[in-house]
Design a protein around this nucleic acid. Sequence first.
DNA 1: GTGCGAGTATGA
DNA 2: CATACTCGCACC
Length: 698
Amino acid sequence: MTTRPADEQLALVAAQVRRARTRKPPGPAEVDPIARVAVDVSLPHLDRPFDYVVPAPLSDAAVPGTRVRVRFAGTLLDGWVLARVAHTDHTGRMERLAKVVSPDPVLTPEVATLARAVADRWAGSLVDVLRAAVPPRHAAVEKALDAAGPPAIPLPPEPPSSPGPWTDYSGGPALLARLADPSLAFGPDAPGPRAVWTAGPGEDPAVALATLVTAAAAAGRGVLVVVPDARDVARLDAALVALLGPGRHRVLTADLGPSARYRAFLEIRRGHVGVVVGTRAAVFAPVRDLGLVVLWDDGDDSLAEPHAPYWHAREVLAQRAVQTGAALVLGSTSRSVEAAALVSSGWAREVVLPRAVLRRRGPRVLTSGSDSDLARDEAARSARLPHVAWETAKSALASGPVLVQVPRRGYVPSLACQTCREPARCLHCHGPLGVASGHAFPSCAWCGRLAADWVCPRCSGTTLRAVSVGERRTAEELGRAFPGVPVRVSGRDPGGAGVLAEVDATPALVVATPGAEPRADGGYAAALLLDGRVMLDRPDLRAGEETVRRWIAAASLVRPASEGGTVVVLADPSLAPVQAVVRHDPAGYAARELVERETLHLPPAWRVAELTGLQADVEDLLERTALPAAASVLGPVPVPVPRRGGADATAPKMRALVVVSRAGGSALAAALHAGAAVRSAHKDGGSVAVRIDPVVLA
DNA sequence: GTGCGAGTATGA
DNA sequence: CATACTCGCACC
């Protein structure tokens, strides 16, 4: 700021004011002078477009999809132009667009429609979805791309020379052929194929996915592949460079940083590339001429958005496939119950290995359920390693690496039957039983009923016991059991070396938490899946499904039985999840689980809304919500998950569940959003988090 | 969320 | 009667 005499400064200001007053403001645009704007406020009662006058000078720039600045309730806010129209229904006074932030229409009509559908499905606000869908602007990137000029148009990629890994799958070559046929135009009325692909043991998913992508891209289709984490992105990126050729795709992840992320996003939006690989938020990538969407490992919990409205990548991509007609492939070594539902309803077809091929490719699977057959070796005994596990690992270590899967720490304590150890569930609503802090008697975490007359449905036992969970065998303990063998650790736990991508074929013990297992060059000679009890006894709806997913994922990294590949599961062999791994049948397990969810009124067979907040707020929201007639309400009860880090008592969070049939899902979401809108408009009470079909339901 | 007008409390 | 404050609501 320069210093001037006060009177001089005053004169300057006065001159500016005079000029501003005398300069005639520009008139409205000649064509479609109204912009319908989604203003960036996430309050539920403001979740609708607002109309603004487009000043003539901004008319060319303010096209649908552009980011704008508008005055709203007196303050300048960001917004998105949803449409340009000739007339408005608004009768009051109308503000003008203050500024078009960037000429790039970052929000395509297709993504805008998708985001609206996502907001509706999860009882949320459009702008909350848009914030995840469109990365923040980075002006320097726009400038750099403009300066670089239009990209050299690469020759169309060559289609893959053979179905490659897809040859062995029933339905595989047919799926590939349809994707690769340029004469098949996919659209909402003639959708592309929808497949649930169960990758067999020994498969390198990156190679198989790259083959799919290349086939579709060669036919001129835009392709979007979403994977759970950065490690998967890196693997697929490498496979695509090899198969599709360099420069034909872009990686889109949050950890690129603001500049690189916006650059990749803009290149996709401007149509420089037609193939995108990314993590969760990439489900909204504005891929041109979208013809194929792919999701790898849809059971991974990182595919659920942690912010409101808590959408899930699987459902978003399914919605996008419906809306655009794009083909959809859900791939996994296992099968989520949601994927099973898509198969059982006939919406998607399964692509699986025939039984005979599966037997040829899979490892031998052994189980060890009781504590009585502990190893005779003393060091193995102190590591609580059963004899079978120790023997298997010892002989496998002669020929290659051995994977040891250990559970992550921090599982919540729960209750089980004293005699048969079956996890205890509420006799009324099948919620998990636990002892809430400050209470002496066990109660249901869902409906709050005391479990006084509990009888075990499996063995008719009447006594409950606390399940000790969270015990983690350390790498050192295992190292002592196998002296002289190198131990490598892969996991996200603090103090470790982080997550390893790959290990070589030399004998070593590779200790990994689920999801962090490195691939082994040539496959593991054996895998030990420890502490099955701990994983299965978690009081979560998805405990069984999740355990199967993790076990099968690990078993799929092991050599075939014909090459000595062996898996040892430490869990009771009579349990269904253990059987699923022994028979390598994730599809059968998921199908049975789906039937069970139907009878228990649980997702995905039924739709559940979880409301979390202070008791008064949860009750207030329920009161103000016109719940569908058939809805049933459980709770509210105290949230069972104890807060980690700091015992200081904040007011206790409560949780209620609202259950409706699948058909009633959209009505329930709309009613809850409307209820929240009334609350936010009146500014009464604190916020309530609404999660539709929550991933974690404990 | 913010800004504003109506309505009510408060003091010279 | 003027000013300070809260409350309710609209926000384009």
